[in-house]
C-alpha cells in the first residue's frame, strides 16, 4: 500500500522531471544540447593537454584524465540535479510550498526527478567516452572491461551521490539565492581532491589525506579499474590507491554510502525543520 503510493510519487516526479528537462524543445535540439555541453567540457581538457604535450593523446595519463572527467559528470549532475529540484521549485515556480504541504514523501519526489537527470547524464557520459575512444585513442577495450568491478562501482557510487545531493538540497533551504553554490562547491572539491583528472599524488600531503576521506576518490579509482584494467596496471603506483584491492575499494565505497545515508538524513531533517521554523520555504531571493 505505502510502497505502491511511493512508487506512484516516484513515477509522477520522474515524469515531471522529464517534462522539465526535455520537453522544452524538440528531441533533436535536446539531444544536441545534452551532448554539446559534456563534449565541450572534455575538449577544454583536451586542448590543455595538447597545448603542453604538442599532440600525442595515446598516453596512459590522457586516458586516465579523459575517463575521470567523463564520469565526473555524474558527480556534478547528480549533486546538482537533486539540489536544483529544491532550488528551482523555490525560486522560480514557488511550487515547493505546494509540494511541501502535499502528503507525499518529499524525498521520493526529489529522487524521482533526479532519476531523469541520471538517465540524461548517462547518455552524455557514453557519448563523451565514445568520442574519446574513437577520435582521441582513449584506452577502453570492451572485451577487457571487468564488469564485476565496474557495475557495482557505478551503482553504489550513484547512490552515494544521490544521498549526498539530498543533504545538500536540505542546506539550500537555509541559504540564499546562490545556495546552488554549495553543491557546486562540494562537486568542485571532489574535482580537485578525488583524483578525477589527475592523480592525487601531485597534491600536497595535507590535501592527499583529505582525498582518502572522500568517497569519490574511491569511486573514480574503481570505475577506471573496472573499465580499463590494463590502463590502471600501466599507471600502477601513480594513482596513490595501489595498496587497495578491488574488493577493498568497493567496500570502502559501500561503507561511505551508508555513512552518508545517516549524515544526509540528519542534515536534511535539521535543515527542513529550520527552514520551517524560519519560514524560508517559499522565499524567493532574486534581485
Amino acid at each position: 500500500m505505502a510502497v505502491s503510493h511511493d512508487l506512484r510519487t516516484f513515477k509522477n516526479a520522474a515524469w515531471l522531471g522529464w517534462q522539465m528537462e526535455a520537453n522544452w524543445t524538440d528531441p533533436f535540439v535536446f539531444a544536441t544540447y545534452s551532448i554539446v555541453k559534456p563534449v565541450a567540457g572534455s575538449l577544454i581538457l583536451v586542448f590543455m593537454y595538447l597545448v603542453i604535450t604538442g599532440g600525442e593523446t595515446q598516453t596512459p595519463f590522457f586516458s586516465y584524465m579523459f575517463i575521470g572527467n567523463a564520469f565526473y559528470m555524474f558527480v556534478a549532475e547528480v549533486l546538482f540535479g537533486v539540489t536544483w529540484v529544491i532550488h528551482d521549485d523555490r525560486e522560480h515556480y514557488m511550487t515547493l510550498k505546494q509540494v511541501y504541504i502535499a502528503p507525499i514523501k518529499f524525498y521520493i519526489y526529489v529522487f524521482g526527478r533526479a532519476a531523469i537527470k541520471i538517465a540524461i547524464t548517462t547518455v552524455g557520459v557514453l557519448v563523451t567516452l565514445a568520442f574519446g575512444v574513437i577520435w582521441l585513442g582513449v584506452e577502453i577495450d570492451l572485451g577487457a572491461v571487468d564488469w564485476m568491478v565496474f557495475i557495482p562501482a557505478l551503482l553504489v557510487g550513484l547512490l552515494t551521490m544521490l544521498i549526498m545531493g539530498l543533504a545538500l538540497g536540505g542546506v539550500t533551504f537555509l541559504t540564499a539565492k546562490h545556495g546552488m553554490g554549495i553543491n557546486e562547491g562540494i562537486a568542485g572539491v571532489f574535482y580537485v581532491l578525488s583524483g578525477v583528472i589527475f592523480p592525487i599524488t601531485v597534491l600536497p600531503e595535507w590535501a592527499q589525506s583529505i582525498s582518502y576521506l572522500l568517497p569519490v576518490t574511491y569511486w573514480m579509482e574503481a570505475l577506471r579499474r573496472g573499465l580499463s584494467p590494463d590502463l590502471m596496471t600501466s599507471l600502477s603506483g601513480a594513482t596513490g590507491l595501489s595498496d587497495f584491492s578491488n574488493l577493498e575499494i568497493l567496500l570502502t565505497l559501500a561503507l561511505s554510502a551508508v555513512a552518508f545515508l545517516f549524515i544526509s538524513s540528519a542534515i536534511f531533517r535539521y535543515a527542513d525543520k529550520t527552514a520551517r521554523r524560519k519560514g524560508k520555504i517559499d522565499w524567493t531571493t532574486s534581485y
Binding site: 581538457l45 593537454y49 603542453i52 595519463f61 584524465m65 574535482y191 580537485v192 583528472i197 592523480p199
Partner: peptide, 14 residues
C-alpha cells in the same frame, strides 16, 4: 576550485 584542478593538471604535465 576549478582553477586549482586545472592548475594541478598543468603542474602534473610540467
Amino acid at each position: 576550485l576549478t582553477v586549482s584542478a586545472y592548475a594541478y593538471i598543468y603542474k602534473y604535465m610540467d
